[in-house]
């Protein structure tokens, strides 16, 4: 009985996964072209999946203001307002590290 319940819960989780992914906020899916969702050997670009939302928001705020030097991130961060950035940060924070 317990095993059955576990199996059911597992399949429920599997079904929930894709729905969550489909609900990625606008802009989030572009980030993974550089910020990998899997471990990439030798990449110098940090992964952001599973990072604290507050940390991602801090990075993005400082990039947007130009306070922190960057290559492309300063230019990209300026394309998103605070609310859009918060949604993307929360979504990445909820992804597996």
């Amino acid at each position: 009985m317990r095993r059955i319940l576990l199996a059911v819960l597992a399949s429920a989780l599997l079904l929930a996964g894709p729905a969550q992914a489909a609900d990625a906020p606008p802009g989030a899916s572009s980030c993974t072209g550089c910020h990998a969702t899997t471990k990439i050997a030798g990449s110098v670009i940090p992964r952001i999946a599973g990072r604290k939302a507050a940390d991602i928001m801090t990075f993005m705020r400082e990039y947007r203001s130009g306070t922190w030097p960057s290559s492309v991130m300063g230019r990209i961060a300026k394309g998103f307002d605070g609310q859009q950035t918060d949604a993307i940060a929360a979504w990445f924070a909820a992804q597996p590290e």
Partner: peptide, 23 residues
């Protein structure tokens, strides 16, 4: 370019290629 930006962007280019082809 300040702070080694050209070299940094060459490294980012290579990392981007590995990441996007994996995705």
């Amino acid at each position: 370019a300040v702070g080694g930006l050209r070299g940094q962007e060459a490294l980012y280019a290579a990392s981007w290629f590995r990441t996007i082809t994996a995705e």
